[in-house]
Design a protein around this nucleic acid. Structure first.
Length: 345
DNA sequence: ACTCTGTGTCAAGACGAT
DNA sequence: ATAATTGACACAGAGT
DNA sequence: ATCGTCC
């Protein structure tokens, strides 16, 4: 998946394009996320499907706590090349494609519902979500793309964030595409050719060519066509009917859809509580909002009915926060600590 | 000798309490 | 009762 | 820091 060996190559040959940050450094930033990547992460980490939904909930809360504005991008119709790959995967997993699409769509519907209740914008990509994320950051509609998938760089995403999660101590890795191109002395077009040689989702690669040689070859000959003329065709045979040109177009051509208007709204407390605890039977019943002045404490955690929301409606037009009761405690604590520090300084 | 590639295994998320 | 992807790391084998 | 729990 993705450009598998690109991360290693960058770490080895262009470490200068990497900076290490923490989540707090992105306060106030707009960040696009590939929803399918996130959901897959949670689904593989926890056995239960509902728990993965909870993971999305918590992670989004963490973003909002840091005043990060997330934009969730959903996959549209996958391009032909990837469709073939997906079908092959589904078959090898022993799933009929109708079964797969059904479970997938019901799952994404739930995620979509949750995110809409949280008041974060969800946009539908015309094609691959990664490609649209890249376009969003390239056009300046968002400040960065958070993804584990290095495809974003091949699609021209200028700022890529990895390991942007809710861990207590998390080291975020930021990749800068302009710096990367400068260090490697490549144009974007040449970089795309390099990624194709490394191996991508959209076409085959030349067997026997790994990161090191691919980089040297591209730096020397600049295009796949010229590389092909300068390698040993016997030891490194080119795949028959190689679709590298289609892959190249896929990376270089913009999806073409205009960035939609992004709007963050107040979370819908009532429906959120409904959805999470009544429909999903989660214990995160108590959901409350935290304006910047009135911090409410002492929400008794065990109320008999599931209507734990107090009616202290405090409208904060921009940065409303929604927190589970338990989470609120910790945030209140950290806030008090923060304020004490601020007043002591 | 050294470098690179392909193959295998393994662990994974976020929370609160201890 | 439960399922089943993806990257990171260690190793062995082939190429230069 | 490590561990049990989340449904």
């Amino acid at each position: 998946m993705g450009i598998t060996k690109l991360a290693d190559l960058i770490r080895g040959d262009a470490p200068g394009s990497i900076t290490y940050k923490e989540i707090g450094d992105y306060t106030g930033k707009i960040i696009a996320l590939d929803t399918s990547i996130i959901v897959n992460q949670f689904r593989s980490a926890v056995p239960n499907l509902t728990l993965s939904l909870l993971g999305v909930f918590y992670r989004t809360l963490t973003f909002l706590e840091h005043d990060i504005k997330p934009v969730f991008v959903f996959d549209g119709d996958p391009p032909e090349q990837k469709r073939a790959v997906l079908e092959k995967r589904a078959q090898s997993a022993g799933w009929s494609s109708s079964q797969r699409s059904h479970t997938v769509s019901s799952k994404t519907r739930e995620v979509l519902r949750l995110l809409q209740l949280l008041g974060v914008p969800c946009v539908q990509a015309p094609g691959d979500a990664e490609a649209f994320c890249a376009q969003l950051v390239r056009s300046g509609a968002v400040d960065a793309v958070a993804s584990e998938d290095m495809d974003t760089l091949a699609f021209g995403g200028t700022v890529l964030l990895r390991q942007l999660n809710a861990k207590r101590v998390s080291e975020v890795t930021e990749y800068s595409l302009p710096k990367l191109l400068e260090i490697l002395q490549l144009t974007q077009k040449e970089f795309v050719d390099l990624c194709i040689l490394l191996g991508c989702d959209y076409c085959d690669k030349i067997a026997g060519l790994g990161p090191s040689r691919a980089l040297k070859l591209i730096q020397q000959h600049r295009t796949i066509e010229d590389v092909m003329l300068n390698i040993n065709r016997k030891t490194h045979p080119v795949p028959v009917g190689w679709q590298y040109q289609a892959a190249r177009r896929l990376f270089l051509d913009s999806p073409g859809s205009e960035p939609p208007p992004l709007q963050w709204s107040e979370p819908n407390e009532k429906e959120l509580v409904n959805f999470l605890c009544q429909e999903k039977h989660l214990r995160e019943e108590k959901v409350t909002k935290d304006g910047d002045g009135g911090v409410r404490q002492n929400l008794s955690p065990q109320e008999e009915g599931e209507r734990g929301e107090k009616k202290g409606r405090r409208q904060t037009d921009e940065s409303g926060r929604i927190l589970s009761c338990d989470t609120e405690k910790t945030v209140c604590r950290s806030r008090r600590i923060h304020r004490q520090k601020a007043t002591e300084d």
